[in-house]
Nucleic acid binder design. Structure first.
Lengths: 198, 198
DNA sequence: TTGATAAACTAATGCTATTAGTTTCATAAT
DNA sequence: ATTATGAAACTAATAGCATTAGTTTATCAA
């Protein structure tokens, strides 16, 4: 009993390890305590509640996703950057199922704190689209579209909605989805340019 | 005590009413029993477990969404149909937050039963894209893309990921997303036609 | 050596779902 | 009319979850 070198960092690390291993986005305090050789209430000496733990893991997930994405688009611009970003994004979700599931279930409309934590991801996509010469508003719009496509694809996949037509190549669908975004963006840019010339 | 005219239908109806009212995708048996003036274990005379209840509500949600969508695209074809479908889809999610949340959290990769129930929705989108002259495989791909965009948009919105740049018109983003899909599809069709002519 | 503090503990509460075993009521058969 | 059966309610109990209150222990500084 007494002091055992438990810290918030170790708790979060163990939670992350579990989530990475199982693919589930959460872990119960019971299971977490068991793995740390401690009784559940002891965890409350280091964390406020499960919410705070979730925030910490969410933070970790976002940080890693953002680092992963930054690395993927380094030195790239335009379509090439968008393509690299998309491929990396989808790959991250596949490699870290539990973490991505957390990212895609965690925040809620009212939860300001969680949304703050997710800001870096948004900024990254804004940067990604900055080389197309769009105005700030349009960057905001297209940022939403790109994220909707990528996230929507992953979400449907995860939910099993793409299970039907199983035989049909998922990889090709993904490429088409990304190409669709680029073609849609190009068409928009052409129209915008034309409109400005008149 | 004794018999009170409780049925599975009434239970499901009450669960649906709660979900529609609160916007939450689930209801606890405790709350459900309370609303039906019954003790929680009594519900087990009519349902197997919460899973079965969820299936029933999910079924209801899918049926209504499909009916709503069928009605929206009646008589329409091509881009007009896609646009009407998209607008109606997004409107349904807004009007039935709880039901759509259930649709977007319920099935899981391993749950064959839930995925069966969702099939009509898939078929609807396949029909929607049937007038473009795509081959079966390409319909399957583009069906995925359209659903990814619509669902991804709703999901991000619901999660609060579009909260930033709050001032920027959500409605316009939605229109851009749908237009993006159509432009992407048109570009794809042009390329396909060209390839066939060579 | 002592005393304060941090960090563990036990015990208990209250929320879930669920099961076992019991009672009651309505209906069908005598 | 009476009785018996089965459906549908009940009570009581179990088990898993988060959480709180109150208690003990170990470490570290005075």
């Amino acid at each position: 009993m007494g002091t055992r070198g438990l810290t918030k960092e170790k708790i979060v690390a163990e939670a992350v390890a579990y989530i990475e291993h199982t693919g589930q986005p959460t872990i119960s305090l019971h299971e977490l305590a068991r793995r740390l050789n401690v009784k559940p209430p002891s965890l409350y000496n280091h964390i406020q509640n499960t919410k705070e733990l979730q925030y910490a893991v969410f933070q970790y997930a976002i940080d890693h996703l953002v680092a992963h994405q930054k690395n993927a688009v380094e030195q790239l611009k335009g379509d090439e950057a968008v393509r690299a970003f998309s491929i990396a994004y989808l790959a991250f979700a596949a490699a870290h199922k539990g973490l991505y599931r957390l990212i895609m279930t965690m925040p809620s409309e009212q939860d300001e704190q969680a949304k703050e934590l997710a800001l870096p991801l948004l900024e990254l996509v804004v940067d990604l689209l900055s080389s197309y010469g769009l105005c700030a508003d349009d960057i905001a719009h297209w940022q939403r579209v790109l994220r909707a496509i990528l996230h929507g694809f992953l979400s449907q996949e995860d939910l099993g909605y793409f299970y039907y037509y199983n035989s049909i190549d998922l990889e090709k669908s993904r490429e088409l989805a990304v190409q669709c975004f680029l073609d849609g963006l190009h068409t928009f840019l052409n129209h915008t340019v034309k409109a400005e010339q008149e």
